[in-house]
Design a protein around this nucleic acid. Structure first.
Lengths: 315, 315
DNA sequence: ACCGGGAATAAGCGATCGCTTAGGCCGCAG
DNA sequence: CTGCGGCCTAAGCGATCGCTTATTCCCGGT
């Protein structure tokens, strides 16, 4: 029984599939499957079985889940507690949808590190909305930016709205889209494939089939394609300020848009939250952070963009 | 960072020495030393340093201790929780001084297992008084019989008196001891070398030097030697009932004896205690258990006696 | 200055971990 | 029937774990 195995088990149980857990951990799917099977063998209990929607826990799996979740969380806490006591820089891990990582987290991390006088280092990673909750709950991440997440009480999370924004559909100023939106070519960034994202919700509302989607590695690349007239690209309005000012793109009128939405900051509930996470959460409410949220960075060049890997915390 | 390493660290911190922890775990001392050094390397913190009495914790070590203790305890809890949910027999581990293990725990375990209709299996091991507290606290053992242990509040233990008895000094009926007790040959069982034991306390009170001690592998062997007239043997009065009835031994008059003492049952505090441990604790208060405590088993034959090994709980 | 005991290190070992790729199994939609 | 997506198993790998014995280091004590 290793912490890695317990971590894998908890993530599978919470995300409902081995594949999702493997993705969240940034490892191959057999790696998770094996960890699970080793744990099953060790405890001589199936723990969770495929059945119905996702998986269902055995009685033993149910007991184990609560205990294992605590252990995993304590493991991460132990590390950061020792690090803090040593006076070393705190490591804060932030997760967010790809578009937010692309435009926001870089400047945000820099500003927050500067504000903490270098005592807190922030790193950011891309995450789907489904995995944000479990990641924060297990302290694989310290703060998530995205939709509201504190629905599942058992995860011990607290979400707080930090920024209100609008999802719109953009297209080249020259192009003239005609016909029904579900026939247009849609140029999207990766989070459109996340069923919990706003973009995905919008596309489903319009009845756009997958065939019509071109998934680009990041928002910038999708917009560049849109500028060339390859189709329409959904996106957060204020992140496209450069393209709009230069008249490369314009907002086009699509049913259901502008889509009003809100970014929430989610951390552990106050009593379990690390001071550094609380500090970043508080920082997000300051005018300085607001300004960073409002005026995006340049966007990450396509060539340098790379999906992040959530390393397991224990060697 | 493995659970084994954390377990070793906690035990070293609580027992104050690597050697003691290795002994309690039933492994060699370098094994513990290495686990500790791996943890130090991983966390990049000395955690604890030699200095003064025992060892002193670094700030990081202090933080880690509380967290690691929880993790280790949860690890054991996870296992038994899954086992319980599966409907398998619960495993209860009992620790006690060697004399108690020799005479009491066998019948006690049998009686309790029978009373639980086979759903709880009890195993027993020898332990020094110093290691009892940490062992129970880390759930390496479920119940300890011996001196009162709930002094250290941080361990979360609860002790309860279960049996009052007398420590006396025995010698062959034929032999006539003369001179000062500190010149006699003393025939003792292993717990006499445990500074926290009653026997050790008695010997210190009499000023008996180590030179005068012959340590036998168990109480029965020590008493057999006393019957042959090899010297005097301290022991619990009611455990020697056979030898006294057959007039092979008699109680001799020594200053400080009879030494009134009391056995306590120690478990985790009620909120952390497992149901099975609570059940055994309760059983110890019943007339059935009292009778077992009063009338000892035959004593373990010397040839079959073997010091126990506390296996680490995680593979 | 010497010794002795506790702790750390070295070296070696078997077993396991944790990861990969490749391939097989199973339920399910077309 | 045939893909296909999700899961598991197999095989192989390098690294680490966890333990041993043997040796060295360090420190307090006669």
């Amino acid at each position: 029984m290793t912490l890695t195995q317990l971590n894998a088990f908890v993530l599978v149980a919470r995300l409902g599939s081995v594949k999702a857990a493997a993705n969240a951990l940034g490892v191959s799917e057999p790696a998770v499957s094996q960890a699970l099977s080793a744990l099953r063998r060790y405890l001589d209990d199936p723990l969770l079985t495929r059945g119905g929607p996702g998986m269902t826990l055995t009685p033993g799996g149910t007991r184990l889940l609560t205990i294992a979740a605590q252990m995993v969380s304590l493991g991460a806490e132990a590390e950061s507690a020792v690090r803090l006591a040593k006076g070393a820089a705190q490591q804060l891990r932030l997760v967010a949808p790809s578009a937010v990582v692309e435009f926001i987290t870089g400047p945000l991390a820099d500003a927050f590190t500067a504000r903490s006088l270098g005592s807190i280092e922030v790193s950011a990673g891309v995450s789907t909305t489904a995995e944000m909750g479990p990641l924060v709950s297990q302290r694989l991440a310290d703060l998530a930016i995205g939709p509201q997440l504190d629905g599942d009480r058992s995860l011990g999370l607290a979400s707080e709205p930090v920024f209100r924004c609008q999802l719109v559909v953009l297209a080249s100023a020259k192009s003239r889209m005609s016909g029904s939106p579900d026939r247009w070519p849609w140029l999207v960034e990766p989070s459109a494939t996340d069923p919990g994202s706003d973009v995905s919700r919008l596309l489903r509302g319009l009845g756009v089939p997958e065939k019509q989607l071109s998934v680009f590695p990041n928002q910038t690349a999708a917009w560049e394609a849109a500028v060339r007239g390859a189709g329409v690209a959904p996106g957060i309005l204020h992140l496209a300020v450069h393209q709009l000012r230069r008249r490369e793109l314009q907002v086009i009128d699509v049913p259901g848009t502008p889509f009003e939405t809100c970014w929430y900051a989610t951390t552990l509930a106050p009593e379990r939250r690390s001071p550094a996470a609380g500090s970043l959460r508080h920082f997000l409410g300051t005018p300085e952070a607001m300004k960073l949220l409002r005026t995006p960075g340049a966007g990450m060049p396509a060539s340098r963009f790379r999906p992040p890997v959530y390393v397991t915390i224990w060697s």
